[in-house]
Design a protein around this nucleic acid. Structure first.
Lengths: 185, 185
DNA sequence: TGCTAAACGGAGACAGTCTCCGTATCGTTC
DNA sequence: GAACGATACGGAGACTGTCTCCGTTTAGCA
């Protein structure tokens, strides 16, 4: 890639990050282009669709995910605490940007999504946490990690769109956690 | 209201119902106006915001909700079956239109929402089901009916946006049900 | 220094939202 | 049944956002 192209691309992503954070993922792309000091054509050449831009914005964020999963695994306490801790972190992670929970949860399991790679990181992090708990026999076997991600993602989506605070989210996560710890069937 | 105004209003709602069902709640309002044979001004006078129109479209649908709750209460079987039956019906009810789950779940608990009245019907139906199960001591007390509605609504939202089928939704609802039946705390 | 492939950028086509205001219609009153 | 005021209509058009096309510019190589 030519040096000027790289420069422009970087600037677009940087501007998009701030704008998305402030206005959500449906902010005007032309505005982002203008703020980045490039033409609309340049933005669309680098990022043919909105999702492609979102994917780029999320790149740095991904690193935090794995770190968080490690933290969850290292947590003291019983399975319920580990699970709840991870759920809360997970919700926080995917809620960094407004509209994020819906975007991510929706893309999860959709192999054609432009943000697929980001979802995989999240999923494999979730897998690690669940696998450990399953190894301890603490969590029911008949629910896949993908379904857990969707459940918790659903809670996060509702919280995000309804602008609920942490206190309102916690009890819902408890229900999900208890449902997973219960024998089920 | 003048007779011609009433006629136009009715036609707009009828057209909107079909268009929303086919294209989702973000269909073009100008198109709906055109199909109803009225000017854009007429549509916007009757329904200042999109949500006002959605509210009107949902009116007939509300009647089905109470009926469904009665059905759930009359269901044979233990608390788990009653709960799961209601959850599945609930998801089906709010998923009649594409985008419905997010719209409804989001408005739930928001007193200023134009579709507030519709949500209340749903909530009171859910309350009746939960109250009966609580009276039997089958369901934990520390989770409100609103939170249950949000949990199940979250599942429905994810299913709607990710176009999941019933088979994928069922296990998630089971987790929620088991979480509610579990002692918790 | 000159050349060419690569990249730029912004005008403009298109689509959707929403308002404004001149025009038409209803229904009431005499 | 004619006249009138309140009510409602409708569509042009201002505005905003998306996305493309193509003439112009520039980086990087020889």
């Amino acid at each position: 890639m030519r040096a000027d192209a790289q420069r422009n691309r970087d600037r677009i992503v940087e501007v998009a990050r701030t704008v998305f954070r402030a206005q959500g993922y449906d902010a005007s792309l032309d505005l982002i282009a203008k703020q980045a000091g490039v033409g609309a054509g340049t933005l669309y050449r680098h990022f043919p669709s909105r999702d492609d831009l979102i994917d780029a914005v999320m790149q740095s964020w991904v690193d935090g995910v794995n770190e968080t999963a490690e933290k969850a695994l290292a947590r003291e306490g019983g399975p319920r605490d580990v699970l709840l801790g991870w759920f809360e972190d997970y919700v926080r992670l995917i809620s960094v940007h407004k509209g994020g929970p819906a975007k991510i949860t929706c893309a999860m399991g959709d192999d054609g999504s432009p943000i697929r790679t980001k979802c995989e990181v999240l999923r494999s992090a979730g897998d690690r946490v669940l696998d450990r708990l399953r190894a301890e026999g603490a969590v029911r076997e008949d629910v896949s990690a993908l379904q857990v991600a969707r459940l918790v993602g659903g809670v996060a989506t509702v919280a995000d769109q309804g602008e609920l605070d942490v206190a309102a989210v916690r009890p819902m996560l408890e229900v999900v956690a208890d449902g997973l710890l219960a024998p089920g069937g």
